[in-house]
């Protein structure tokens, strides 16, 4: 038990701290804190789903923001059409993301390495431009939501605290699910295909099917994050799917520590807090942020999760 605690203190501590946010938020500017933390949790959820692909599968998808966008647009379009039910939003978001993942994944998984990075980028861009073409839903400018998703006809998510807790619940559920997947038969094959695809084929596995399945799972989780994101910002626009957003998600995963899952959460916290602090400090905060990013890549190998748990490995 003690050993397990020592190994697991980081994810435990992370979730404990996140759970305390609604309790501590009233001590400061409550709505600001809750909105910032909701954003962090939602981005962490998206980054977590990406870690399944990059960390476990070795598949550097440069179009993950598209899946986030699918979720956001499911809320935006349905709300604009008068469907405000959160269950419907989620169902449509997940179904659309699954369709997108299967259609694009079937092509993308035939390539590897740099070509995979580029083709996922291309599919992301396709969806981005598709969103700008939705003139009925704001085109380039996007649409403002009439309100948050409802649950069984009641607007419980209107409370910032409830929305935050819903997001945190989704993050915890996704984290536990992905941990199980990582330790399952499926996860083992996925990691094997990352490390040595030829060896995997030589013992009888076709990496393609496993990678496609991982892509599917990852896209569906990211779509859930998109639904939450739309609710948090109250606004949906193509900018959610810009390739820079995909780049940021990759960075968050790498910053946190590839393949550790909780690293993605840590990365999201660090990334968004840094962005927030620096942007308060100066409008030209990116002049510091860019070099920080470079330094993180050059020197923080293993990511934040690696740095924090270095001494604790059994």
């Amino acid at each position: 038990m003690a050993r397990r605690l020592r190994r697991e203190w980081l994810p435990l501590g992370l979730f404990l701290a996140l759970a305390l946010v609604p309790v501590l938020a009233p001590l400061g500017p409550q709505s600001f804190i809750l909105s910032l933390m909701t954003r962090i949790v939602v981005v962490a959820l998206a980054a977590l789903s990406l870690d399944l692909l990059i960390g476990k599968g070795g598949l550097v998808s440069f179009g993950h923001a598209a899946c986030l966008g699918i979720g956001a647009y499911a809320v935006g379009i349905l709300s604009a059409e008068g469907v405000t039910d959160g269950g419907a939003h989620l169902a449509v978001a997940i179904a659309a993301a699954a369709f997108f993942a299967l259609a694009t994944g079937a092509v993308a998984m035939r390539t590897d390495g740099v070509h995979f990075i580029m083709i996922t980028l291309a599919f992301g861009q396709m969806l981005y431009f598709l969103a700008t073409a939705l003139s009925a839903y704001g085109g380039d400018d996007g649409i403002t939501l009439p309100g948050r998703s409802t649950v069984l006809g009641r607007d419980v998510l209107a409370s910032d605290t409830v929305l935050y807790l819903a997001a945190l619940g989704a993050l915890l559920a996704a984290y536990l699910l992905l941990r199980r997947i990582a330790a399952s038969r499926f996860g083992r094959v996925l990691e094997g295909a990352r490390d040595n695809p030829v060896r995997m084929e030589a013992i009888g596995f076709r990496p393609f099917r496993f990678r496609l399945a991982a892509y599917l799972i990852s896209a569906m989780i990211a779509a859930v994050a998109g639904v939450l994101l739309a609710n948090q910002t109250g606004f949906v626009s193509p900018a959610t799917m810009a390739w820079q957003r995909s780049g940021e998600l990759i960075f968050i995963v790498v910053l946190g520590g590839l393949g550790s899952l909780h690293g993605a959460i840590l990365g999201a916290i660090a990334f968004i807090l840094a962005e927030e602090l620096l942007s308060h400090w100066s409008e030209h905060w990116r002049i510091v942020f860019g070099p920080l990013l470079i330094l993180a890549v050059l020197f923080a190998r293993g990511g934040l999760a690696g740095l924090l748990t270095k001494g604790a490995r059994p």
């Binding site: 199980r180 399952s184 038969r185 499926f186 996860g187 083992r188 013992i203 009888g204 496993f210």
Partner: peptide, 18 residues
Amino acid sequence: LAVQARSGSSFRFLSPVD
């Protein structure tokens, strides 16, 4: 993992393989 290749589906997501 090589044993796994010959014994049943590897599309099992939830039970720990170890």
